[in-house]
């Protein structure tokens, strides 16, 4: 690795995470090609594209998927690769991969129509959680306490324009303490982990949850690695809950935010992600 290497940073907006990555790149003497996802255009043949490796930091799932396909088509390695992002970005596909790998996850049933969603909720039992298959930050998720509420929420969701709101990801409500756990994996290493505490059942840091560093137990660490491997590995944030029978993985995020995790742990996560990305450059 040397200063001849050009890092492509594919992004939507520059948050502290992206700024730290750019600072870490500057500290390593790297050239950076900034690839704003609302400006870049993609010819079918590589033309004038300088990057030796691309780090995807776009917050848009749709833009990420097409862009990663193009970068790979141009022969450029990406972090994370298309296959990992497409799998993790869709909760249904991610749940299938986790289940296949034997990773404990909350009980989940998928339904493709509002009518079937009601049956799925009855099967899972109340309270249950309804999630959109794509999207995050806890948006448009609903905790459903009984059938009457289910009918109302499903009617509202079915009225939303996107067909994705007529696909219903129904999950058991896990009676957990008022916190969940997040671990960030970079390649073979769990680089940092924290509790996210909130009296809201959604413990996303983006929703204002308090964050506290934690040292993963060997059990948690093994589970995190298992979940990361199940989706193809790379830079991943694995979210876990403390269910009555032990830890369960409920989400694996392929383009994780890490501002709160950096603040809670003091770990230089941006530098670790950058170094992992640079290892992907073809030698």
């Amino acid at each position: 690795m040397n200063s001849d290497t050009t890092l492509g940073l594919f992004y939507t907006i520059i948050r502290p995470e992206e700024k730290w990555i750019l600072e870490a790149a500057a500290a390593r003497g790297l050239q950076v090609e900034r690839l704003a996802d609302d400006e870049i255009t993609f010819p079918l043949e590589r033309n004038g594209f300088k990057s030796d490796v691309v780090l995807n930091r776009s917050v848009s799932h749709t833009r990420s998927l097409y862009a990663l396909r193009f970068f790979e088509h141009y022969g450029v390695p990406t972090v994370n690769p298309y296959d990992v992002v497409s799998l993790c970005g869709d909760k249904i596909l991610a749940s299938l991969a986790l289940q296949k790998a034997g990773v404990p996850t909350p009980r989940t049933i998928v339904a493709l129509t509002p009518e079937a969603a009601l049956r799925a909720l009855d099967e899972v039992g109340y309270p249950a959680v309804l999630k959109p298959p794509i999207g995050s930050w806890g948006r448009l998720m609903a905790k459903v306490d009984d059938r009457e509420e289910a009918e109302q929420i499903i009617e509202h969701k079915a009225a939303l324009a996107s067909p994705m709101h007529s696909v219903f990801y129904v999950q058991e409500f896990v009676p957990k303490p008022e916190r969940d756990l997040r671990a960030l994996v970079v390649g073979d290493e769990v680089v940092a982990a924290m509790y996210r505490q909130s009296s809201d059942w959604r413990t996303n840091a983006a929703r204002g949850a308090e964050t506290v560093a934690l040292h993963p137990t060997p059990e948690m660490e093994e589970l995190v690695h298992q979940a990361a491997r199940a989706v193809g590995g790379g830079v991943l944030a694995v979210d876990l809950m403390e269910a009555p029978d032990g830890l369960v993985v409920h989400e694996v995020n392929p383009t994780p935010e890490f501002k709160a995790l950096t603040a809670a742990t003091g770990v230089e996560i941006a530098a670790k992600i950058l170094d992992f990305t640079l290892e992907k450059v073809a030698r």
């Binding site: 609302d38 799932h61 749709t62 995050s136 944030a237 995020n253 392929p254 994780p256």
Partner: peptide
């Protein structure tokens, strides 16, 4: 004004 959050945005 910053770009408005879209439905498929997330981490």
């Amino acid at each position: 004004i910053a770009p408005k959050e879209q439905e498929d945005w997330g981490e």
